[in-house]
Design a protein around this nucleic acid. Structure first.
Lengths: 244, 244
DNA sequence: CGGCCGCATTGACAAACGTCAATTTATAAA
DNA sequence: TTTATAAATTGACGTTTGTCAATGCGGCCG
């Protein structure tokens, strides 16, 4: 959302990147990595800065070196829906490269983040040269599709409370710390409004659900910190009718 | 859902298929089409028969020659959610081929349908031989992902009534007939229960929404037939707050 | 330090939704 | 055609949610 331009960095090249062997680009050979290095530029973003905006023309694909990025979409009224959280190693924005259309979502840094932009021409050249890269993108996209479809099923069948429990469990996996026994704690990467949009409700309703969860001893919220006494208890929330 | 086995047909080969130049396989050369023909088998399904079931091991990808197929997912309680309607020319089930996992969704014929099964080995060979096929799948998957994400945004921001209006407009495009003026009519390919699952609500609620829509003169339902006096009126339903 | 602004919480009320149950209408089978 | 079975509708009722509005909390900048 912040319009400030990100810092451009002179970079060491992708062969030295920490994500070299953990991202989709791992299928590239050494000289293809050199091509990638030449066709790429590294940028540093502060909290809230926009990596790319919805409606913008695609400039290439984006590879997250460090930090977390929120993928969101806005509806005509200006409401935003948080669709995905992306972390280091993730590659973003190749849908628009393939279709040639403008970005359907916007990407925004959730904290200090470094992201590399690989120009459209370089991406297309690399895909043509090494088909494995395209296959890698295909696998990744298929996984995202399954993810989105699972969310659709949950939106259709689960209560908001169960959906919140599910999101907490996912965030627990992503950025939570496990305690001694079945306990855990999370530092949320997102605001309450975004959390509400993730489960498909208003932020006021989310507040009430949180209140009820605290009453029931399931999870305790304080700012962006969440404490979960028993992680399995959250799991039980997702399928209430199966417990009986 | 019907466990009856589909009819197997001796086929003429994919080079003669009506979908030859309208499906993802259009990127294949003549001799690659011959490979496709040899690695494929054609099956005829009756209404309600299962093409592949959730949890089943993948046997390959499925190409719809004629008819319509419903892609659905079941949650642990047995509720089903209709995720996608597929028509002739569409290719299904390649996610499972890529990941090697079992099918996450089930596919079921909505009416008499003919579907070709292309064996896993043939698919992998063709993708390795002609990277354009993989790219074609990638484009298709990316489009489906955008579709799913748009639905997620709608589930989070629109009322059930607006969502129904939206589904009707999509079905209007797919299988509707336009009248003289702004009117139109649709023969629904799905039951009320499925329609309800598409907009994420119970079938009883859908019944009531339909009742209110008929009261307001927006659409008239009779069995699986829907009459829409003014198509633009449905469009206005989707963004009620923008009309003011 | 204080004011400002956005985020979060809480309350009150009306509207929408889910559930259970009964009834009517289709559809398929005998 | 009759019967059985599933789908669809309708009613009643309690719960949840959205909306509007007011208040509390926290960071940021002057």
């Amino acid at each position: 959302m912040t319009p400030t331009t990100p810092t451009r960095e002179t970079t060491l090249g992708c062969d030295a990147c920490v994500m070299r062997h953990k991202s989709d680009w791992q299928v590239l050979s050494d000289d293809e990595i050199q091509m990638l290095s030449r066709g790429q530029s590294k940028h540093c973003y502060e909290t809230g800065q926009t990596v790319y905006a919805m409606g913008e023309r695609s400039r290439g694909v984006y590879c997250i070196c460090s930090g977390a990025v929120a993928i969101r979409q806005f509806d005509p009224e200006g409401n935003s829906v948080l669709l995905q959280l992306a972390y280091s190693g993730d590659t973003l924005g190749y849908e628009s490269v393939l279709t040639g259309e403008t970005h359907r979502c916007s990407a925004e840094a959730l904290g200090p983040a470094t992201v590399c932009l690989i120009g459209t021409h370089t991406v297309k050249t690399l895909i043509a040269r090494n088909p494995d890269l395209g296959l890698q993108f295909l696998r990744r996209t298929a996984a995202k599709l399954q993810d989105a479809q699972e969310k659709l099923v949950q939106h259709a069948t689960l209560s908001n409370r169960a959906k919140l429990a599910h999101v907490l469990l996912i965030l627990m996996d992503r950025c939570g710390r496990r305690g001694t026994d079945g306990a855990g704690s999370i530092y949320l990467p997102v605001s309450r409004r975004d959390l509400a949009s993730m489960i498909g409700t208003r932020h006021e309703t989310l507040s009430r659900i949180i209140g009820r969860m605290e009453n029931d001893g399931l999870a305790y919220f304080s700012g962006r910190s969440v404490d979960i006494p028993r992680i399995e208890a959250l799991l039980g929330e997702i399928r209430p009718q199966l417990v009986g």
